[in-house]
Structure formats: structure tokens, C-alpha cells
């Protein structure tokens, strides 16, 4: 497992992380405020985010692969095809079966999936071009409570360490999970397997609890007393500010186009 960050020196990478966070949130909000059936607007929203990805030199493979993550959830919108508003069109299935489908529902379902896919792309571009420490500083400057930012920062630091521990546990389990051919109960019962997994979770918890004590000791030894340093809310460079304003204006424009063309 790796961070999603793809190192680079493009203008997008160097942009103040606050600009990227605000733009991404605005992007997702405007896109989701666009009515269904606004295909021209969707295409242009996608164009905008693909352009940013191009400027940041992100590979198409990355964008496509990551976007798959929202796909399983598309199932949630599929029922709209059958329950959407009238008029219903009968769909003749092989075997004489007829299902009433709603073309309007189909359009809505496709719109939801399209918007979801484009939203994920925007989130991918943010995560791929912003280093985690920069993202955390930006969040704190955008008024996310500093305690929460500190907790998340520490969490991200130990994420990979503990993920390695879990991978070690899973490998150790797999290396002992041999099945005898002809055994009537290969792998034991489901309950037994669940309990073993739970035991792993429990020992992970205890080990992490002990680790947190050691981390605490290391922090305290270097003067930590629970007070977190304030981040100066450094002003945005005028260039970044102008770029952000331009980006937001573009998003608003695309949204209006969506209103005019959507249904």
C-alpha cells in the first residue's frame, strides 16, 4: 500500500493546498448541484478535471483505476430504472417476461453514476497532487480544529506501520492455513475462523495501545505538553487567489450550462 501522492513539480503540485481543497470541494458541490441529463455540462466538468490531471502529469491509468472504487455503489441507483417516474416502457425479456422500465429513471441512474465517477476523479487529482503534510496544514488553516488535524496527522504517520503489522499477521495466518486433502472440515468452522480473526484484531488493538504509550513517551520527552502550536493563517499568494477565483467562476459557468441543458 502506498500513499496516492504522485510526486511531481507541476504547477498543480506547487499550488497552495488550500486552493486545491477549496476547488475540489466546490467542484464536487457544483457538479452535484447540476440536474440530471445535463450531459454537456458533465462532459465539460470532466474536461476540466482531466485538464488539471494532464497539467499535473497524472497517468490516465491512475485516474481510471481509482475511479472504480465508487462503482459497486452504482447498484444503489439501479432500482431507479424500474421504479423511476412514469411513463413506463415494457421491456421484453427472453422467455416471455416483460419488465416495466422507466426511461426517465434510466437517465437519472446514468446521471448519478456519471456525476459520481467525475467526483471521484476530482478527489483523486487532489490526493495525487498534494502531499499529506501540506493537506493537513491546509485543513488547519481552513479552520478544521487543530486537535483533529493533529490526531489525523499522527494517524497517517502510523497507518503504514500498522498496515505492515496487519499484513504480517495475515501472512503468518496464511502460512499456517494448510488444508489436508480429504479433511472433512477444511479450514475449521466459520465461527472458529471469525474468532481467530477477532483475536488478531484484539492483539492489534493491544499492540497499538502499547505503541501509543511509547509514542506518548517520545513526544513528552521532547517537550510535548498537549498544547498544539497555532498555524499562522498565511495569506494566499495573489496569483493563487486569482487562479482560485477563475476556477470557481468556471465551475459556476459550467453549472449554469447544466441548468440550461439538464432535465
Amino acid at each position: 500500500m502506498h500513499e496516492l501522492y504522485v510526486s511531481g513539480d507541476s504547477g498543480i503540485h506547487q499550488l497552495d493546498a488550500r486552493v486545491k481543497v477549496i476547488f475540489t470541494v466546490a467542484f464536487v458541490v457544483f457538479l452535484n448541484l447540476t440536474p440530471s441529463r445535463a450531459w454537456p455540462a458533465y462532459i465539460l466538468f470532466l474536461t476540466a478535471i482531466v485538464s488539471v490531471a494532464l497539467i499535473a502529469r497524472l497517468g490516465a491509468g491512475l485516474l481510471l483505476r481509482r475511479a472504480l472504487i465508487a462503482l459497486p455503489f452504482a447498484l444503489a441507483a439501479v432500482p431507479l430504472i424500474f421504479t423511476g417516474p412514469a411513463p413506463r416502457v415494457p421491456l421484453h425479456m427472453p422467455g416471455g417476461l416483460t419488465i416495466a422500465t422507466s426511461p426517465e429513471g434510466l437517465v437519472r441512474c446514468a446521471s448519478i453514476v456519471a456525476k459520481s465517477w467525475i467526483s471521484v476523479e476530482a478527489a483523486v487529482v487532489l490526493a495525487a497532487t498534494t502531499r499529506v503534510p501540506d493537506l493537513l496544514v491546509a485543513l488547519q488553516r481552513l479552520r478544521v480544529p487543530k486537535l483533529l488535524v493533529a490526531v489525523v496527522g499522527l494517524m497517517v504517520r502510523y497507518l503504514f506501520v500498522i498496515v505492515d503489522e496487519v499484513n504480517g499477521m495475515l501472512r503468518a495466518r496464511a502460512s499456517r492455513s494448510a488444508t489436508l486433502t480429504g479433511s472433512r472440515h477444511p479450514g475449521g468452522s466459520v465461527f472458529w475462523r471469525a474468532r481467530v480473526t477477532g483475536g488478531m484484531a484484539g492483539s492489534l488493538f493491544l499492540r497499538s495501545l502499547e505503541r501509543s504509550d511509547r509514542v506518548y513517551a517520545a513526544m513528552v520527552s521532547r517537550g510535548y505538553n498537549g498544547e498544539l502550536p497555532d498555524r499562522q493563517p498565511a495569506a494566499l499568494p495573489r496569483k493563487d487567489l486569482a487562479l482560485l477565483a477563475l476556477g470557481l467562476a468556471l465551475l459556476a459557468l459550467l453549472w449554469m450550462l447544466g441548468l440550461l441543458t439538464g432535465g
Binding site: 504517520r157 505503541r211 511509547r214 509514542v215 513517551a217 517520545a218 513526544m219 521532547r222 517537550g223
Partner: peptide, 26 residues
């Protein structure tokens, strides 16, 4: 200055610089 056994416990910041700057900051 205490250097703990497991450096992973001691290096709790997202970057090396922030970690080394932690003590002086406090």
C-alpha cells in the same frame, strides 16, 4: 535527550523535518 528503542515510536511526524523540528518548536 532520550532516543527510544523503536525509531518508529519516536518519528511520529509526517516528514523528517517536522519531526526534527518538533522539540525546538515546543
Amino acid at each position: 535527550g532520550v532516543v527510544f528503542q523503536d525509531p518508529d515510536d519516536q518519528l511520529f511526524s509526517p516528514t523528517v523535518f517536522e519531526d526534527v523540528a518538533f522539540g525546538p518548536t515546543y
